[in-house]
């Protein structure tokens, strides 16, 4: 598979993630969408790492770090979801519009 193909897959994945992030009301679904978007970036990095870059360590480390940060991110986000859930027993993103003035 060529670089271009990988990139297109990445773009598709990103777009799917976007749909997830934009269309869902559930906070967890939003999170999933965003994770897909980040993974699309990872795929791109890996593909470039393979086809373009002479020293392949950078891309890999980049992806590893992304994975690590995603873990941290998810941890925080899920705890926030739990906090909201405690308060509301609901995790509907649209209910959150109550805040905006």
């Amino acid at each position: 598979m060529t670089l271009e193909a990988y990139l297109l897959v990445g773009a598709a994945l990103f777009s799917l993630g976007l749909i997830g992030a934009l269309s869902h009301r559930n906070l967890i679904a939003l999170l999933i969408g965003i994770e897909l978007m980040m993974n699309a970036a990872s795929l791109n990095l890996m593909a470039f790492n393979r086809f373009v870059v002479t020293d392949p360590t950078t891309g890999q480390i980049f992806v590893l770090i992304i994975i690590g940060l995603a873990a941290a991110e998810v941890a925080i986000f899920l705890s926030i979801i739990l906090r909201i859930y405690r308060a509301y027993h609901d995790i509907d993103a649209e209910k959150l519009t109550k805040l905006s003035g």
Partner: peptide, 17 residues
């Protein structure tokens, strides 16, 4: 303009994209 910006936060993201 505030009313347009209020609410549905995913809309902003979509438009930004």
């Amino acid at each position: 303009s505030t009313r347009v910006q209020g609410g549905w936060m995913q809309l902003y993201l979509g438009w930004a994209i």
